[in-house]
Write a protein that binds this DNA or RNA. Structure first.
Lengths: 157, 157
DNA sequence: GCACGGTTACTCGGATAGCGCCTGTCCGAGTCCCGCGGG
DNA sequence: CCCGCGGGACTCGGACAGGCGCTATCCGAGTAACCGTGC
């Protein structure tokens, strides 16, 4: 899986307790990551309607929805694309008994089994929201959210 | 996900109703696939102890375990490797409050959530065996297994 | 008729190129803030 | 003192190289079957 997914998730989590836009460069400095590439990931999140971007001074990115309305699946799909990881190439079409015009997507038992597993994965991701993660952080590491918010906001020197 | 996984699964399924070794070239002809590359995938399955290979004339690949003892997860791991798809890079270590010697794998809520989803995926794959797939095929398309077996065996001209 | 050895052909197995996607980087278009000048 | 305007700097946004893993391919080592020969 693309590494940018991890960056996007952590970025969303940190943005969830910010009330002012944060520049991509600031987030990149926080994680010690290459700024332009993180910017690229944030653009993908913006295209998906997860974050909103405001240009100009004191601009940056902010969440465009409530943290409780952003699931992990939303973020993964925004970065990785909507295509499932296991893509059935309809291998049976080329078999000696294959019909070139037949349907080998729904009827293929291998594809069906893999789709079931992937559906289970997606269901789990869709059941967790950014707000849930934020709650876990506040419960496990009290005060760390405030610490991060202050650091990100203090950059406004 | 690697396309070879699909090939490996279909190969295992077809091997499940064969009682004599089948050469990689014959399986490749059945699916209309490049033979040397399918051979490579079968080698990976052999290293994982899923299939056994016998060289020489009338040689080839056969399942090395009962179909009921081969889960889809076994096949996926054999081809894709044991590494999870989402790999936590411990991004928080580089943060201003990060401790270079701290543990950011178990404590990271993002990593934990992604691992939960991936565990759900693996659990689903581990719950399905090649024998289950074979049963589905026989139930949905009666006689097709015999057809395929005859074709693969007839190659022995 | 039977056993045995050499030959043959067939199989896997690992080492070798090609390509596409993700990673990483750069510069330009747009926008808001700040300071200056005028009323 | 207040308002309007221009310069400047900061931000995103998309276009441009590099590297790694999957895809595809080839040839060599090993082995079992087959056939011919001798007993």
């Amino acid at each position: 899986m693309a590494e940018g997914v991890e960056w996007a998730l952590h970025s969303c989590l940190n943005l969830s307790w910010m009330d002012v836009p944060v520049p991509a460069a600031r987030l990149a400095a926080y994680f010690d990551l290459p700024a332009p590439y993180l910017n690229k990931q944030l653009q993908a999140l913006a295209r998906a309607g997860i974050v909103a971007s405001t240009p100009g001074p004191r601009g940056g990115f902010r969440l465009d929805r409530a943290p409780a309305a952003i699931t992990l699946l939303d973020v993964v799909v925004a970065i990785e694309g909507p295509e499932p990881a296991f893509r059935c190439t309809e291998i049976l079409r080329g078999s000696p008994f294959g019909d070139p015009k037949g349907n080998y997507l729904d009827g293929c038992v291998v594809s069906a089994a893999m789709s079931r597993a992937e559906l289970s994965w997606r269901r789990e991701l869709a059941a967790t929201t950014v707000a849930d993660l934020a709650g876990d952080v506040e419960r496990t590491y009290p005060g760390s959210a405030d610490q991060s918010r202050d650091w990100l906001a203090a950059a406004r020197a």
